[in-house]
Amino acid sequence: MNTFLQLVLNGLGKGAVYALLALGFVVIFKATEVVNFAHGSLVLIGGYMVYATKDALGWPAAAALGIVSAALAALLIERLLIAHARNADVNSLALLTIGVDVIITEEIVRRLRADIPFIGDPYDAQPLQAAGLTVFRTQLVALIVGIVLITAFFLAFRFSSWGVAMRAQAENREAAALMGIRSSRVTATAWLLAGALAGVAVLFMATQDFSGAGLGRGTHAIALIAFPAAILGGLDSTVGAVVGGLIVGLTEALSAQYVSFEFSKSAVFLVMLLILVIRPSGLFGTRELSRV
C-alpha cells in the first residue's frame, strides 16, 4: 500500500510539471492553431540562462532572468519568423518550429559542453519524509507554483481583456478582427506567456528530484513527453492540459511498477493513442467540424 501511495505521490508531483509544459502548447495553439515543436528548446534557453548567471547573480535573480529569457525567445520566434511566414498554413508553421528547435537545441547543448548543470538549488534533493512516505521538495514546490500559475491563468483568461480577446480569436479569427481585436498582439502575448511557462517549468525539470539529470538533451526530451499530455487533454483546452499532465505523470509512475519500467514511456503514448481513437480531438478538445 505504501508503495502504491508513494507512486501516486511521485506521479502527481511530476504531473504538475507536465501540466505547466502542456499549458504552454495549449496557449499558443489556442491563439494561433500552431503547435509549437520548439517548446523544448525554450525550456533549454531558460535553463541555460539560469545556469550561466546563477553564480554571479544568485539563484532568485538568475531564475527570474531565465523565465524572462525564455519568454523573450518565444516572442522573438513569433515576431521574427512566424509573423513573417504569411503564406504558410498552420501545419507548415509547426514544421518551421521543428527547424527552430533543432538549431536552438544543438546550440545550447554545444554551449553546455560536458556540463549537465542542476538548477533547482533552493529545493532540490531535500526530501520531506512522513509516515513512511516521501515527498520530494522539488515536486511540492512545483505543485504549489503550478496551482498558483494555472489559477492565475484561468482568471486572466476569463476576466482580462487579453483573455477575452484571445478566446474571441480562438473562436473565430475573422470575426475577432472585425470587432477590432488586434490579432498580432494577442498572438504575441500568447507566445510570451508560453515561453514564460517553459522558463518556470525548467526550474523544476533540471533537478535531481524531477528528472535525475541536469540541463541537457534529456531536459529537451522531457518536453516531448509533455506532448501527449497536451494532446490527450485536447490541444485547445486549458483544463485538458492540466488533466493531461496529471494523467501522464500517473501513467508513468504506475505502469513502471505494475507493468515494467521500460514499458512506462510507451504506456504514456498508448494511453494517448487510445484516447485519440475514441476522441480524435482529445478529452476536452473541441471537435473539429469538416468545413466545406
Binding site: 501545419n91 509547426a94 490541444l235
Partner: peptide, 21 residues
C-alpha cells in the same frame, strides 16, 4: 484514418516509442 495534422504526427510518434519497447 481518424486523425489529422499534428494530432496524427504525435500519434505516429508513439510508434517510435512502441518500436523501442
Amino acid at each position: 484514418g481518424r486523425l489529422r495534422g499534428i494530432y496524427l504526427g504525435v500519434a505516429s510518434l508513439s510508434l517510435v516509442f512502441l518500436g523501442l519497447y
